[in-house]
Simulated assay, not measured.
Amino acid sequence: MRLQGKTAIVTGGASGFGAGIVRKFIAEGARVLVADINTEGAEAFAGELGNNAVAQTVDVADTISVEAMTDAALGAFGSIDILVNNAGITHERGPLEEITEEEFDRVLAVNAKSVFLTARTIIPHMKERGSGAVLNVASTAAVSPRPMLNWYNASKGWMVTATKTMAVELAPAGIRVNALAPVAGETPLLKKFMGEDTPEMRAAFLATIPIGRFSDPEDMGNAACYLCSDEASMVTGVVLEVDGGRCI
């Protein structure tokens, strides 16, 4: 029960890595706001998890929606101890000059602007309390980029730098900020990362991961639990690679 008594918001919490983080947090004693643009998915998942999970619809790229999410968490829990910026998207694989401006804007809005928006609404609350933990879900794409996903790579690189600068600025306020860098996993984004989901593409992708498998939601949940728990009270500004050796 490493998160006993803690409250958390997990964006993109209804599926994929976010769902793995939510499950682990609940198992470790936290109360969690499952925030997702998929209202039906968030409500179904929260209902499955019981009284310690609350569903909330959110578009993390929209100011009003993020403010409503924050108000919902404070209304349900009274405080926010942990923020996990997990929601993310990518564009279709392709040469960097062929990605449309609309795709670029959407990727940067969801992957980068969202961190700015949640910081504006939630960090002041954490400062008032003198404590908090923020976890940004980046990617191995930020550390070891793959071709044909250029602007997605860049958005995750932005998140790594944001994590470090937030950590430096917020440490005196008692707020820790870290990031996870997973390799691709069995999530809705996997097909876009590979271009096509075939046995041959999976084999080629897995050949780049020394441990020989994709990241899974449980891997992410375990790593997130540590970084957001008091066990990591001396850890801030870290980008933890959960990648089976992909970035070595």
Rank of each mutant, 00 (worst) to 15 (best):
I123S: 12
T121A: 15
T90R: 02
A142T: 14
G132R: 02
R129V: 09
A109E: 04
E98D: 12
M148F: 15
V107D: 11
L149F: 08
L96H: 09
W158G: 03
K127L: 07
A154R: 00
G94R: 02
T140C: 10
A109Q: 08
R93I: 02
V134L: 12
P147Q: 13
I82M: 07
K113S: 03
N153Y: 09
A112T: 14
W151V: 10
L83H: 02
F116W: 10
M126N: 06
A112G: 02
I123Y: 12
A73M: 06
E97N: 09
V143W: 07
M126V: 11
I122D: 08
N136D: 05
E97R: 10
N85S: 09
R129F: 02
P145Q: 09
N153V: 07
S155G: 03
V107M: 07
R146Y: 08
P147D: 09
A141D: 04
R129D: 06
A72I: 02
G75N: 15
G88R: 10
S79D: 14
N86P: 00
A141K: 04
N86K: 06
N85G: 01
A119Q: 08
M159K: 00
A141Q: 10
V137W: 09
A72H: 13
A141M: 09
R106D: 12
N150G: 14
N111Y: 12
K113H: 04
T70A: 11
